[in-house]
Every structure is written in structure tokens, then in C-alpha cells.
Simulated scan of single mutants.
Amino acid sequence: MRFIIIKRKWLFVVLAGLLVGSLYYFNQEALPTFQNSQESQNDIVINMVTGEFTSTTSDGKKIEAYRWDPGTIVIPKGEDVSLSIYGVNGKEHPFYIEGTDIKGVVKKGEETVIPLHFNEEGTYRLICDTHTDNGHGVPMIAYIVVD
């Protein structure tokens, strides 16, 4: 009988420790989705990749859609930001950011870094010139929200 009581005490101690540990873990603040660059403490770096979804319809037709991932990013107004896009799917994605003079190309297996600085709040679209309409799958658009 004494052995069963000792086991229950240890079980209680272990469960209490797990409870306290989980309360500590889940009460920590949320982490931001961007980080300060190690090269410059004033430069925010946001990472993005090119992605692809493919499938086959019941009649055997192959369908595909390319996308920027994440599809929406939020950056602070008036701050210097580096958008780092790594090409994972698709040979290349020529792009432009609507409402700006920013243009470039993301190539498979390479990183393209785009310096950004917006002084006006709003939503700017990052658009791939290759995948702009349903003739090339769905449009490949990401949203840059400046707040």
C-alpha cells in the first residue's frame, strides 16, 4: 500500500512540473515573422520562396499554380526592408511590384534580394509576369502590406 502512495506522489510531482512548464511555454510573447539582419541592425529581412501546386484532373489534364510563399507580408512604413526570395519551383519568375519602379527575376536555385522602403501605407502587389492570368495557371501575386 505504501508503494502505491509513493508512486502517486511522484506522479503528482511530475504532472505538476509539466503543468508549470507548459504554462511558462505558452505564455511567452509571439515571435515576429521577420528578424533584424546580422549584417545591419537597421535592416529587416523577410524571407519568401516560389512554390508550385500541381494536380491532374479526372480527364487526365495536368493543372498547376505557382505562388509566392508567404502570400502576404507586412512591413513597417518608413523602414528599410530586404525581401529575400529563393527560387524553389519554376525556372524563373520575372516580377514587378505594382506602384513602384521595382523589377527583377527570381531564378530556380538562386536567391534574389530586393531592397524595399515604403513611405506610404497601403497594399502593393508583387506580380510574376509569367503567371499573370488563367492561361498560365492562376495569377502569381503576393501582397506587401505597408503599415
Rank of each mutant, 00 (worst) to 15 (best):
M1K: 08
M1E: 11
M1N: 11
F3L: 07
I4N: 08
I5Q: 08
I6A: 11
K7S: 14
R8T: 05
W10Q: 09
L11A: 08
L11F: 13
L11Q: 06
F12W: 05
V14H: 04
V14M: 10
V14K: 04
V14Q: 04
L15G: 09
L15A: 15
L15R: 08
A16K: 07
A16W: 07
A16V: 13
G17M: 14
L18K: 07
L19A: 15
L23D: 01
L23T: 10
Y24D: 06
Y25A: 12
F26Y: 15
E29A: 14
E29Y: 12
E29Q: 14
E29G: 14
E29S: 15
A30V: 09
A30K: 06
L31D: 07
T33I: 08
F34V: 01
F34S: 14
Q35S: 12
Q35C: 06
N36G: 11
Q38C: 01
E39V: 14
Q41Y: 05
Q41N: 09
Q41M: 09
D43H: 08
D43Q: 11
D43E: 15
I44E: 01
M48D: 03
M48W: 10
T50W: 05
F53T: 12
F53P: 00
S55Y: 12
S55L: 09
T56I: 14
T56P: 00
T57R: 13
S58F: 09
S58Y: 07
S58R: 13
D59K: 07
I63K: 00
E64C: 00
A65R: 10
Y66I: 02
R67L: 06
W68H: 06
P70A: 12
V74P: 02
V74H: 11
V74Q: 06
K77H: 03
E79R: 15
D80L: 07
S82W: 03
L83V: 03
S84C: 01
I85R: 03
V88I: 15
V88F: 04
E92V: 01
F95N: 02
F95T: 01
Y96G: 01
I97L: 02
I97Q: 06
D101N: 15
D101I: 00
D101V: 00
K103T: 13
K103D: 05
K103R: 14
G104T: 03
G104K: 11
V106W: 03
V106E: 01
K108Y: 05
K108F: 04
G109N: 12
E110L: 11
E110A: 11
T112L: 04
V113M: 07
I114D: 01
I114Q: 04
P115N: 09
P115V: 04
P115F: 03
L116F: 00
L116H: 03
H117S: 13
F118Q: 13
N119G: 11
N119W: 00
N119Y: 02
G122H: 06
T123D: 12
Y124G: 04
Y124Q: 06
Y124K: 06
R125P: 00
L126D: 00
I127A: 03
H131L: 03
D133M: 01
D133R: 02
D133V: 01
D133G: 06
N134Y: 14
G137W: 02
G137R: 02
G137Y: 05
P139R: 05
P139Q: 13
M140Q: 08
M140V: 05
M140P: 03
I141K: 04
I144V: 07
V145I: 10
V146M: 08
V146P: 05
V146F: 07
D147N: 12
